[in-house]
Design a binder for these strands. Structure first.
Lengths: 218, 218
DNA sequence: ACCTGAACACCGTTCAAGT
DNA sequence: ACCTGAACACCGTTCAAGT
């Protein structure tokens, strides 16, 4: 009786995702992923060509965590929901962004996702060029937002007090007057939320897309 | 007589940038950076705390390559120029994006840059909230655009023919009809340029920002 | 076909030792 | 104060050997 199910490429990639979730991308080594599966590192080479292929697998894996747009929804809330889902998945697995950066061969889940989004817009009346532009702009914005979000010098879910302490130590007002003004304003307002910031920027894009769609007679 | 100038933190970071430019981020090891400077790896530890600090230095270094907005320019072309300069710097040093992802402590050049941009908008009539929103949205878009640009399965500077060959092999039309349609359209048009795509998306954001600025009485 | 152990050429980092 | 060499605990990957 086999103590463990046989290795497959999918099981190897899943294990790598678990290792990355626990210890970050730096901990994803052939040896560590092997250990996660109760197997020697060298066994993995029967299922992935090399470590680069394993990372390609991880880059595709994250797309299994992103919802596809639902057929019945109008395009604007559908795109907003997709953007939120993408942001959530990338933020929940912070290692994934670094991979999206560097992988050059899109995996099957990436292709399926992109095809679905494009199809959704086309069936909802977008001319092909506008669908392309909108898709490209929204995706760029979402990726970039998560980059800056993960890169914040404070925990966005944390308290405003901690935020102020943390940042004002880094930002002397004499040297960076406008950044200091910004920090002070946020400290006063107390309601600053990065989630709101996300939606504000997304609406800037979607507003313009809506104008262009009307101009195109959609 | 000293054969080489004494090590400094700045010289160490410059050397690391050279190593990254030549061989990618993976080649940036303490040993390789040491070799670039004609010095043992262990000597670097007198100038940077550890490898993480060296990477922090690299993440700040890229901002020395990005132009600050010029005082006399109106906000819209100034923001467009800054976006283009940022995109150019990140694309010219592809390793830099992966670092912006993961570093949590902004360096002095990052702070100076952000302060300058914010100040530019404020002096040009932007209320603080709108300046913040615009800055955040533009930066997210630029970062994310470069992510997808570097991630393209073809060389954006290459020929359209190569692009079509490359992509259509990856994208069977039966499985990905909308992606296939997109590829076919681009192949026909022949003029597709990722530079135009960049500006189209940026204009989506800037158009909306302009509307908001007028509403705010700017 | 699938898994393994030893081996090779690398890592980051420590430490005691040199100047 | 600054640089070094040896050492330690890691890497990815190869290869010949096992089942």
């Amino acid at each position: 009786m086999p103590q463990r199910p046989p290795l497959t490429r999918a099981r190897v990639v899943d294990a790598a995702a678990r290792v990355a979730d626990e210890g970050g991308l730096a901990k994803v080594s052939m040896r560590n992923v092997g250990r996660e599966l109760g197997v020697e590192a060298m066994s993995l080479y029967h299922h992935v060509k090399d470590k680069a292929a394993l990372l390609d697998g991880l880059a595709d894996w994250i797309y299994t965590r992103i919802d596809l747009p639902e057929r019945a929804t109008p395009w604007r809330p559908a795109m907003a929901a997709r953007a939120a889902s993408t942001r959530g998945a990338l933020a929940a697995h912070p290692w994934s962004l670094a991979l999206v950066d560097t992988r050059r061969v899109p995996g099957p889940h990436v292709l399926r996702h992109n095809d679905a989004v494009l199809g959704f817009l086309r069936r909802d009346g977008f001319p092909l060029p506008l669908a392309t532009h909108a898709f490209s702009a929204i995706d760029a914005y979402v990726y970039g937002f998560v980059v800056t979000e993960l890169n914040l010098p404070f925990d966005p879910a944390g308290s405003v007090d901690a935020f102020v302490d943390n940042v004002s130590a880094l930002i002397p007002a004499e040297r960076y007057p406008y950044l200091a003004e910004l920090v002070a304003a946020h400290a006063e307002e107390r309601g600053y939320s990065y989630a709101e910031e996300f939606e504000y920027g997304l609406d800037l894009i979607l507003d313009s897309v809506e104008v262009r769609l009307r101009e195109a007679g959609g």
